[in-house]
Amino acid sequence: MEVTGFIAAGESATALAYIKARRGLSPRQIMLIILICTLAVGIPVGAGLSGSWFAAAVSVEFAFIGTLVGSLIVQRLTGPMMRRALAERGQAYEHPFTFRLTPEALVYDSVDLTMTARWSCVTDIYKTRKYWVFLVQSSAIILPRRFFNTPEVERAFIAEATARLTEAARLRSPDTAAFLRD
């Protein structure tokens, strides 16, 4: 069983935020911790040095706003810069992609790159809003949900993938069980 479609360069980075959360801290959690620490440490230290809680709070708030504006600028520049860098190397921004389930393995095939993962090393599968993520040891292989023409095709594909997982991997994949139940 297989599905095909086009995948954009860097698209997997979107899904990686969810992957990091399953392994530890997500980028959003890291940013929240940094911002809370900025407030929790910056205001008292600033108040101690300046003698004014108000002045310290205003300074830290402006630092907080600067961090958010900088993050937005980086986010806006990343896509166009990646496209330009790929074009300079003669690479396309989008590639045809095939995701195949065989009795022995999961196969990811995108133009010049083919990855094969035996089912025994697929540790779990989970669903995000836009992707199915297959964790293969410490790496992730993403499958865009838009590749499925209908919910029935998606359900059949995920059912087959789930059936090929080891029992331990099925237990670590509650998203697949919930998806197949609904």
Rank of each mutant, 00 (worst) to 15 (best):
M1D: 04
V3L: 00
V3P: 00
T4S: 09
T4A: 10
G5T: 04
G5Y: 01
F6A: 13
A8V: 03
A9C: 10
A9K: 06
A9G: 07
E11R: 04
S12L: 11
A13K: 15
A13R: 14
A15N: 01
Y18L: 04
Y18F: 12
I19P: 02
K20P: 04
R22C: 00
G24T: 00
L25W: 15
L25P: 02
L32E: 07
L32W: 11
I33H: 07
I33Q: 10
I34C: 11
I34S: 08
I34P: 05
A40G: 04
A40S: 07
V41P: 05
G42Q: 02
I43V: 08
P44M: 06
V45F: 09
A47Y: 00
A47V: 00
S52Q: 02
W53N: 11
W53Q: 10
A56D: 01
A57F: 05
A57D: 04
V60E: 00
V60P: 00
E61A: 15
E61R: 12
A63N: 09
F64I: 09
F64L: 13
I65F: 08
G66S: 07
G66T: 03
V69K: 05
G70K: 07
G70C: 08
G70V: 05
S71G: 15
I73C: 08
V74D: 14
V74N: 14
V74T: 14
Q75G: 10
R76I: 10
R76A: 12
G79K: 15
P80A: 00
P80K: 06
P80H: 01
M82N: 12
R84G: 03
A85I: 05
A87G: 09
A87Q: 13
E88A: 11
R89Y: 07
G90L: 03
Q91I: 13
Q91A: 13
Q91R: 14
A92N: 10
H95L: 10
F99C: 05
R100F: 04
L101F: 02
T102E: 08
P103M: 06
A105Q: 08
V107I: 09
V107C: 01
S110E: 11
V111W: 11
D112Q: 11
D112K: 14
T114S: 10
M115P: 07
T116A: 09
R118T: 12
W119D: 04
S120L: 13
C121M: 15
C121R: 15
C121H: 12
T123F: 05
I125H: 02
K127C: 07
W132R: 01
V133E: 03
V133A: 04
V133G: 00
F134E: 05
F134C: 08
F134R: 05
F134V: 11
V136G: 04
V136K: 00
Q137H: 12
Q137C: 12
S138G: 14
S138N: 15
A140V: 06
I141F: 11
I141Y: 13
I141S: 11
I142Q: 09
I142W: 11
I142G: 06
P144V: 01
R145D: 09
R145N: 10
F148S: 05
N149T: 14
P151A: 00
E152K: 13
R155D: 02
F157E: 02
A159V: 01
A161Y: 00
A163L: 02
A163P: 03
A168R: 09
A169Y: 01
L171V: 12
P174H: 03
T176E: 10
T176K: 10
T176Q: 12
R181A: 10
R181I: 04
D182M: 09
